[in-house]
Design a protein around this nucleic acid. Structure first.
Lengths: 107, 107
DNA sequence: GCGATCGATAACTCATTGGCTATTGATGAA
DNA sequence: TTCATCAATAGCCAATGAGTTATCGATCGC
């Protein structure tokens, strides 16, 4: 399977899609109409974005009569956090290596 | 000005570009030829990616004779970390609000 | 000085994708 | 039952952008 952060970066790169996700994080559960009202794009566009977000595991949907409620799935952000930690961690490793080297030279 | 995380998501969405950045994080300073050797794409493509990364503040370049060395600028990742913290933070806020509400109902 | 290498730019192609309108299936209200 | 609303799908279009080859200025080694 592809690295878990791959799909997250790709999914969150689009501003409209990210705005929808942010809205769900800020305000919780939302129906498609509610989201469409503020998205600045058509309802089908919103539905498509929600489909992509769902595919990435970033949202869940819950059917209630003829309404569909979407909500953010914050746990799905974990690979993103892991990735940044790893990137900054690599630097620390190299720094530690340098420290070790200097220590060894000192002896 | 555009939100600082906007350009980061857009820049890091491309796998080839992200791989170049990861390589710089892992192994530090690299010339364009060295990066091209492992990138799986042509040298002009690598140069273009480095230009985009530089525009986003994610890398710095250092000229040394006819070689150009690039290095990762980890501080540029801060807005990404802030963004994820904010998203998860929103959830906590809503949870706190709910707690407050329940408390008030309890009285 | 001369040929070779480094890295950036130009010009182009092609696939991807985000947007739209139209439509349809499903549910709720009258 | 009938009409309206919700949300997803289909089909299309235009813009974006990642890749290519060709080239060019600059620097190094001989």
């Amino acid at each position: 399977m592809p690295q878990p952060h791959e799909i997250l970066f790709r999914t969150l790169a689009d501003p409209t899609r990210r705005a929808i996700f942010e809205r769900l994080c800020r305000d919780g559960d939302q129906t498609v109409v509610a989201l469409t009202a503020r998205a600045g794009v058509s309802q089908p566009a919103v539905s498509k974005h929600l489909g992509v977000l769902k595919q990435a595991g970033l949202v869940r949907d819950r059917h209630e009569g003829r309404n569909t409620h979407y909500s953010a799935e914050l746990g799905a952000l974990a690979p993103l956090i892991d990735w940044t930690n790893q990137m900054t961690g690599f630097w620390k490793s190299r720094f530690d290596d340098l420290e070790d080297l200097l220590k060894r030279m000192d002896q």
